[in-house]
Structures are given as structure tokens and as C-alpha cells.
Amino acid sequence: MVKATIKKIASTLMIAGVAITVASTTMAAGKISGKTERMVRSDYVTAVEGKTVAYVPISLGLPLSDYWMYGIQTSAEAAGMKFVVKDPAWKVDAMTQAISALISDKVDYLVVQNPDVQVLAKLLKKAEENGTHVIQLNMASNYRSSGFVGVDWVSHGEEIGQDIVKECGTGSGKSGKVAIVQGELTAAANVWFVAGLKKALGEDSAISIVNDQAAQWDATKAHDITAAVLQQNPDLCATAGVWGIMMLGSGQAVKEAGLSDQVLVYGSGSNSRPVCDALESGVLHKHFSYDSILQGRDVVNAIQAIAQTGLEPGEKPFALYSPIMIQDSKTVKATDCHDLIAK
């Protein structure tokens, strides 16, 4: 531990030293500075420009994947890269076919949102063996590729859990009853999110989970489940789920029961307009948001970095975790929300 810290300090000092040296040299001779700048620029151009970035989400047409596409496409094209997108429209087979085709087309960078941890793992490995860098976006697979950009799901779930404990747990004077609305039981994001959530909730004995059902990403199902749960537990304290859009259904059920003041509705996801509207009108209480357009830009930043280091695919895997912003009816501001991207 200490060793690592020393190493870290040493390397920082070294970098600082190099920087100072470079700076002083630059100051000494302006001519060389121009040359370096041109070199940096020409290295960048040869490494980045004209390269192809392919983006394969689970499906287009969702705020999340549309924001990502916007973020990736604008930044990639601004950097002089070519952008390709394939829309499998929820069909895993179409997704594997699209990725196989991209591998044989030898695209340079492949950005993928995994439907689960396994289905694409073999293909992504094959892609990297064929020289294509793979960036996994928000939902990772079992295969560790060049890069991961997205939410740290377990800690994300934990954060929400801790917030619920603060609101409903020991000392709050409330019932401590919590209902979890799951998405799809097998989806990776759902599994890890719920694991983190339950871990945090389990740390307070005053909290009891009264219902834990899957709504299959469907707001209507979430609505019906929550309505039934409220009948049984009118003193419910909070309900939480992995996806804000789905939790709109839960929120409506709470509102219909006239319990908006008492039952807290938690969601997570991108900061899209419908979610912000719901926060303003009190249908949702707290939303743990990440900015998907910025995530798209993170992806392209990562790609630019990989391109210039000249690393082989998968040689030095890294992760960029997205920052989370907590929105509620007070903090939600129009500036923090993205409008839906029209076609």
C-alpha cells in the first residue's frame, strides 16, 4: 500500500519534472515549440482522423441510446472520424450479426452496449483479436475489452440504498417498508444495481423489503405492481427501481393513491425530459442521473487516447465511471435535462 503510494508520488514527480523541462525548453526556444506542436498535431491526425467508430446499442429509439448516439457521433465527427451505427432493435440475433459484419469489415473502434454479460463476450474477444478496439458502454460483458465507459452499477445501487436508509431507516420515524421494482431479472445492470441496493438496505435492520418484483422494463406493469403493494402496505416508505422511465408507472400509482407526500419514488437513468417533468410534478421524488450525451463524449475521448497510445486491443483495459448527479424537485433545473432527440 505504502509502496504503491510512493510509486504514485514518484511518477507524479517525474511527470511534473518532464513537464517543467518541456516548459522551460519551450520558453527557451519558440521555434522548437512550434515544431513540437506540429508533431503532436500530425501524430494526432494520423492516429485519429479517418478512423471508423461503430456504435451498436441494444436498440435505438430510447432516450439513453439516442443521447449516446448524439454524443458519440458529434464528437467523433468533430475529431475527423467516421461514424457507423447499427440498430438491432432489441433482437440479439441481429446484434450478433451486426457485430460479426463489423468485425469482418475491420472497423477500428466498436462501441457496444451489452444486453447481458455473456452473449457478446466471445464476439468481442474475436473482434479484439482481429484488431478492433472494443469500448463497452454502460453495460459490460464478461470479456474485459480495451475500455469500459459507464455507470458503476453496484455503487450506484448502494448510493440510492443509502439515501433510502437515510429517509426511511432507523430514527426517521417512518415504517421502513421498501418496495423494489426490478427491470429484467437477468439483465446485468439490473442484477448489479439491485445487489448494491439490497446491500445498502440490509445494513439497517429497520428497513424491510416488502415486495421485489420484476416489471420487465414496463411502466404499466410497474404501475400495477405498485398499486397492489400500496393496497397491502399503505404505510410504504419508498419504492425504487433501476430505470426512471419504468418508475414513472410506480409514481403514477403512488399519486393515484394520494400518497405522494409519504411514499418516496426513486429512479435512476439518463436526465431526459420526461424524467425531469415527472420530478417537477412530484411523480418521481429522486432521480440518480447520469448524462448520456457526456458519456458519448467520454467514449470518443477514450478512443482518441487509445488511438494515440498505439496500444493493441485489450492490452491495457481501463474503465471510465460516469459521475452521478442527484436530481429532485428542488434541484431539477431545465439546464440539467435533455430534450428528447427528434428523428
Binding site: 432489441w90 440479439v92 450478433t96 444486453p115 447481458d116 455473456q118 452473449v119 457478446l120 463476450a121 466471445k122 464476439l123 429484467e184 431479472l185 437477468t186 439483465a187
Partner: peptide
């Protein structure tokens, strides 16, 4: 081929 089993298989 894919070594995977997911909910929408």
C-alpha cells in the same frame, strides 16, 4: 457458439 443464455434468447 455463443456460450450465452439471456432472457430474450
Amino acid at each position: 457458439r455463443l456460450n450465452s443464455s439471456s432472457s430474450n434468447t
